Simulated assay, not measured.
Amino acid sequence: MSKMITLLILFPVIVFFVSFIISKYLLQKRKKSFGLAADLTTFLLFFSVSNAFYVVFSKNIFLLLIGISLIIASTLTYIEWKKEKEIEIKPLLRKIWRLLFLLLCVIYALIWLIGVIRYVLYYIS
């Protein structure tokens, strides 16, 4: 069981594709299935990005990720409040969560790319 959890944390792409396929089969709606898969994967990406960063740079950034996420959530809430004057919680949370998904995916991909480059350079030299 712990190997399964480790695999899912190391490769959140697997979780994304499996949840997308299952939800597409159950819901029959591609857009909604993509959103659901992104929502499920976002939670896992917090751990994946933190773990990958630790492996590549030997620094723990989990609390930093949480702090940055809170700042992003506060900023988006403020912007929404200034724009609409009345905040609808569910759409706001969806915007925040999806933005975090995009940011964490990009960070995760960059960390993996940097890690692969460092690994190749280490073994070339």
Results as ranks from 00 to 15, higher is better:
Thr6Asp: 13
Phe57Ser: 02
Tyr123Gln: 05
Phe11Asp: 05
Leu99Trp: 11
Gly67Gln: 09
Leu104Tyr: 10
Leu104His: 05
Val18Lys: 04
Leu40Pro: 00
Leu99Asp: 05
Leu63Tyr: 12
Arg94Gln: 14
Arg118Leu: 10
Ser125His: 15
Leu104Gly: 01
Tyr123Pro: 00
Leu10Phe: 11
Ile9Met: 05
Lys24Gln: 14
Phe62Glu: 01
Leu7Phe: 15
Gln28Ser: 10
Lys24Arg: 12
Ile124Lys: 14
Lys31Phe: 13
Tyr119Cys: 02
Ala37Pro: 05
Ile124Asn: 06
Ile68Arg: 00
Leu27Glu: 03
Ile79Thr: 14
Ala73His: 06
Leu99Asn: 07
Leu102Glu: 11
Phe53Gln: 03
Leu27Pro: 01
Tyr78His: 06
Arg98Ile: 13
Thr41Gly: 03
Lys24Gly: 12
Leu110Met: 10
Ala109Asp: 06
Lys83Glu: 11
Leu121Met: 10
Ala37Asp: 05
Phe34Gly: 01
Leu113Gln: 04
Ala38Arg: 10
Tyr25Ala: 07
Lys3Thr: 05
Ile111Gly: 00
Leu76Arg: 12
Phe20Pro: 02
Ser48His: 10
Phe57Met: 03
Leu113Arg: 09
Ser125Lys: 15
Phe17Ala: 04
Ile61Arg: 08
Ser23Ala: 05
Ala109Cys: 08
Val18Tyr: 10
Phe34Arg: 06
Tyr54His: 09
Leu8Met: 14
Phe11Cys: 04
Val106Glu: 02
Ile87Pro: 02
Phe43Glu: 04
Glu88Leu: 12
Phe47Cys: 05
Arg94Tyr: 15
Lys82Met: 06
Phe53Val: 08
Leu110Gln: 09
Asn60Glu: 14
Leu113Phe: 12
Ile87Thr: 11
Tyr54Cys: 02
Val49Met: 06
Ile71Cys: 02
Ile96Ala: 03
Lys59Ser: 07
Ile22Trp: 13
Lys95Leu: 09
Val18Met: 07
Lys31Met: 12
Lys31Ser: 10
Leu27Gly: 03
Leu64Gln: 07
Trp97Glu: 08
Glu86Lys: 15
Ile89Trp: 04
Thr77Trp: 04
Leu103Thr: 09
Lys29Asn: 15
Leu63Gly: 02
Ser19Arg: 07
Tyr119His: 09
Leu64Gly: 03
Leu26Ala: 09
Leu44His: 10
Trp81His: 11
Leu44Gly: 01
Tyr123Phe: 14
Thr77Val: 07
Val120Gly: 00
Leu63His: 07
Ile114Met: 04
Phe34Trp: 08
Leu93Ala: 07
Ser69Trp: 05
Leu10Arg: 15
Leu110Pro: 03
Val120Asp: 00
Arg98Lys: 10
Glu80Cys: 06
Leu40Thr: 08
Trp81Tyr: 14
Ile117Trp: 03
Ser23Met: 07
Ile124Pro: 02
Ile72Ala: 08
Met1His: 13
Leu64Ile: 11
Lys3Cys: 00
Leu113Trp: 06
Val120Ile: 15
Arg94His: 15
Glu80Tyr: 12
Leu92Met: 04
Leu102Tyr: 14
Ser33Ala: 14
